[in-house]
């Protein structure tokens, strides 16, 4: 817990059939920060994310989370260590109610998840905590609604509640406001600010308004490599960043 950096990558690289999608990325995420990963399309943001969450194995380089080497860890394993991700497309369980969505995330702690002879009524002890989390994201009225009937913005909020149920030390958010209307963006931004008070957040985000409002530190990627890193003011005044986004002025 006392580590200064909760997540450190060293020389992280990923090749796909000779194409280097991520090139020698050395990233340090400070404990307690909201850290953003930005960059133009194809810069390798999502690939970095997938490397961190073990969807892909890195070709070279190492990753350290909370002082432990996670380069070869399995996806479910890092989740149990407190590093929990969200997805670009809303990751919910559509045929379960909102309450069940959060509860299934809480229930691993009970240690009864392999018990097929026990009644699911035994999970009701978790309902109170699940309701708290739903209330926190403003979904208490939808507890009994099957999730496929809910609006997109609410699904994203539910996803955050489900992620929070894991009590993550590090939350990885993959474009949390993508595809949202302005009102929803506002709500999710507030929500992220709220939940980040007691944990670290690393997010990929396109919406620079959200990034400037939230993030303590920003890493800019371009063609798989780190272009620059700093606060929003530092990064946004860097001419190389403007060039990467807008192209070289003619």
């Amino acid at each position: 817990m006392s580590e200064e950096h909760i997540l450190v990558t060293d020389g992280l690289s990923k090749d796909f059939l000779g194409f280097t999608a991520v090139d020698n990325v050395t990233l340090k995420v400070r404990t307690g920060d909201i850290h953003a990963l930005i960059g133009p399309n194809g810069a390798g943001k999502t690939t970095v994310f997938n490397l961190l969450t073990k969807v892909h194995q890195p070709t070279r380089g190492t990753m350290t989370y909370d002082g432990r080497d996670i380069t070869r860890a399995k996806p479910a394993q890092i989740a149990r260590m407190g590093m929990v991700r969200s997805f670009q497309i809303s990751a919910v369980f559509p045929h379960m109610t909102a309450l069940e969505n959060v509860r299934v995330s809480l229930q691993r702690e009970l240690g009864t998840s392999f018990h097929f002879w026990r009644s699911e009524k035994s999970l009701r002890v978790l309902d109170e905590r699940a309701m708290e989390l739903l209330t926190m994201v403003g979904l208490e009225r939808y507890a009994e609604t099957e999730v496929h009937e809910m609006a997109y913005g609410r699904k994203r909020a539910l996803e955050i509640a489900t992620t929070l149920a894991q009590e993550p030390k590090l939350m990885l958010l993959d474009e949390p406001t993508q595809g949202m209307g302005r009102e929803d963006v506002q709500r999710i931004t507030e929500l992220i600010r709220e939940v980040a008070k007691s944990r670290t957040v690393l997010m990929v985000e396109h919406n620079l308004g959200v990034v400037s409002a939230l993030c303590d530190r920003i890493t800019v990627l371009q063609r798989g490599a780190i272009l620059t890193e700093g606060t929003y003011e530092e990064v946004s005044s860097d001419p190389r960043v403007k060039e990467a986004y807008m192209g070289r002025a003619a």
């Binding site: 989740a79 997805f87 045929h95 299934v104 998840s113 002879w117 009644s119 999970l123």
Partner: peptide, 19 residues
């Protein structure tokens, strides 16, 4: 059962269950 709940979650959205 608790097991059945996890099974439903996996069938509904496997990558999310992993995460």
């Amino acid at each position: 059962s608790p097991f059945g709940q996890v099974l439903r979650a996996i069938r509904d959205n496997e990558p999310r269950a992993v995460s």
